[in-house]
């Protein structure tokens, strides 16, 4: 083979490698040009891991749009998927006098912890995380989500005929703990048992589907998944094989349409509402750093339920009232959801 054709092949390989990088590497920062201005105006910067057309990052973008419309914030966002760029993205925003910098994901916590002491006039928050500094407080949505799913568990226990429910989750605590809340609600009815299935890969739709089919073969008639896209496989299994005897609860977003004859209700997590509450506190100057900012069902609007209207004969007004009553008891502290050991 001639030298020229070898060179052509090398060029082709390089192009292919560059293409392969496209999906993971971010676009450069789209922050406004003016720099060094003091924080006279209220400015919010968002660092997010995926395109804003994606469900996860889209939520954060919706939140800052609302901050612009309702709080008069000047907003900017940048997609940073590569860990090497985290710190730079945070300090870029902070050095331009941003009031609040949001990292949309727990993976940003180390960068926020490291950068925040250098910029005492900027507030930092991340969605998830457990570290904090004087002007950095991550938000923790898990405690409230455990409570919300507890209420769903209480409702599902009334629907279940076999008394068996199965939950599908991933290795990390943020996906697992909410289902522990569901367990406590479901098992609060005597004789009801919940089993948790841990999946290895949040992208493996096939494994999620098989796991659901095995749980159904084992007699579970209530399924709930909090396992990223593998959870879609669970809902698909229920839609295909669940008939009129197996039901599911949707999580994170409204998943009722994914199995319209089987999802009783969804418990969407209103992350924009939580971020908005943090932005409000940053604007008022009541933002508290130094500890994790936990959200519970007492934070209005963050935890919601969307009932499936097509299953109104199963999810009766009495059941909805039971959910409301449970939430009221959780708010007053009459019922508490235990953190598992």
């Amino acid at each position: 083979m001639s030298k020229v054709s070898k060179q052509i092949i090398v060029v082709m390989m390089v192009v292919a490698l560059l293409l392969s990088g496209c999906a993971g590497v971010s676009a450069p920062a789209a922050a406004p040009a003016e720099s060094g201005a003091p924080a006279a105006t209220f400015k919010v910067g968002l660092v997010h891991p995926s395109p804003i057309t994606d469900a996860w990052s889209g939520q954060a973008y919706a939140a800052i749009e609302r901050m612009r419309d309702e709080l008069g914030a000047e907003i900017a966002n940048v997609e940073v998927g590569d860990p090497a760029g985290y710190e730079k993205a945070f300090s870029d925003f902070a050095s331009q006098g941003y009031t609040l910098v949001i990292g949309h994901g727990f993976q940003y916590q180390d960068a926020a912890e490291k950068v925040s002491p250098d910029f005492p006039n900027t507030y930092f928050t991340t969605v998830g995380g457990f570290k904090s500094t004087a002007n950095y407080a991550p938000i923790d949505l898990v405690p409230g989500y455990m409570q919300a799913l507890y209420a769903m568990g209480v409702m599902a226990a009334q629907v279940s005929k076999t008394g068996k429910a199965a939950g599908f989750t991933l290795e990390n605590p943020a996906t697992k703990l909410p289902l522990e809340g569901f367990r406590q609600g479901f098992e609060s009815v005597p004789g009801h048992t919940f089993s948790m299935i841990v999946l290895r890969d949040g992208n493996d739709v096939g494994a999620g589907k098989e796991a659901a089919l095995q749980a159904m073969a084992d007699g579970a008639d209530i399924l709930i998944a909090n396992a990223n896209l593998a959870g879609d496989g669970v809902l698909q299994a229920v839609a295909e094989q669940g008939g009129d005897s197996v039901f599911a609860i949707g999580t994170i977003g409204n998943q009722n349409s994914k199995a319209p004859k089987n999802v009783l209700a969804s418990a969407p997590l209103n992350i924009p509402q939580a971020l908005f509450a943090v932005a409000q506190s940053a604007k008022d100057g009541t933002f508290e750093g130094g500890h994790v900012r936990p959200f519970t069902v007492n934070d209005e609007g963050v935890y919601q339920f969307v009932y499936n209207e097509e299953l109104a004969d199963i999810v009766t007004p009495e059941l909805k009232a039971l959910v409301d009553e449970t939430i009221a008891k959780l708010k007053s502290g009459e019922i508490t959801v235990e953190m598992p050991q």
């Binding site: 999906a23 290895r200 890969d201 992208n203 493996d204 739709v205 096939g206 494994a207 589907k209 896209l229 879609d232 496989g233 698909q236």
Partner: peptide
Amino acid sequence: ANQFVENMVA
């Protein structure tokens, strides 16, 4: 799976 998910081959 009846859908494509990034890295779904897992």
